[in-house]
């Protein structure tokens, strides 16, 4: 937790520049979110996708209506953002205790070519067991991402390898499936729990 907010410690130009940069990322995603209703994530009931969770169950948007949802996009080959966020989510779930049992917590891979159900299962064993991994055909992942108004992009690296750029915020929906808020990646983590408690009702 500590590291996130101390990318640069101390005072001075570099710290200021970094704070500005981080702040800008936050501001941009907020302003984009607020730029018009068309850019808000759809209500869950209006989304369309057919995916599979890491336990092998089919998942459609209808399955999410009736309970609050916390959703995050990522991929298991991601060494920095994804384990950090899943670790944060695990800490939040710890702090919420049994209240969080009512929360539908999903980690949707944007790299389903490598992240199959068993791969997600292995990976998620390191985190809170209430986090459900979700994979499926690329086209269905794209439909889910579109419903969230999120984005991802495959970035080739040398030697045929690749990485993924992806929306890093944590999405929150209330029990009726209405979009409630985003916990932005560089947002102060202290705001996360109140946001989650709000969708828990």
């Amino acid at each position: 937790m500590r590291g996130r907010r101390t990318v640069i410690l101390g005072l001075g130009g570099v710290a200021g520049a970094t704070a500005y940069m981080l702040g800008l990322g936050w501001w941009q995603s907020r302003s984009r979110e607020g730029a018009g209703p068309a850019l808000l994530p759809l209500p869950v009931a209006e989304m369309a996708f057919s995916l599979t969770d890491h336990r092998g169950n089919r998942v459609t948007p209808a399955d999410w209506v009736g309970q609050p949802t916390l959703a995050f996009f990522g991929f298991t080959w991601c060494p920095d953002v994804c384990p950090t966020t899943l670790s944060d989510i695990s800490l939040w779930l710890d702090e919420l205790g049994a209240d969080a049992d009512r929360l539908n917590v999903v980690f949707i891979t944007v790299d389903p070519e490598r992240d199959t159900g068993p791969v997600l299962s292995d990976y998620l064993a390191s985190f809170d067991p209430r986090i459900t991994g979700i994979a499926g055909p690329v086209a269905e992942v794209e439909r889910a991402v579109a419903g969230f108004r999120a984005r991802f992009e495959k970035v080739p690296r040398d030697g045929g390898d690749y990485t993924m750029n992806h929306t890093a915020g944590v999405f929150l929906f209330d029990a009726d499936g209405r979009f409630a808020s985003i916990i932005d990646y560089h947002e102060d983590r202290r705001f996360a729990l109140p946001k989650i408690r709000r969708v828990l009702g």
Binding site: G3, V7, G12, P79
Partner: peptide, 18 residues
């Protein structure tokens, strides 16, 4: 920079071990 502490930390600079 002189007089400062810089962190390679989650969400910022990091060593990527490929």
């Amino acid at each position: 920079p002189a007089g400062q502490t810089v962190a390679l930390a989650p969400g910022g600079y990091h060593g990527m071990l490929m």
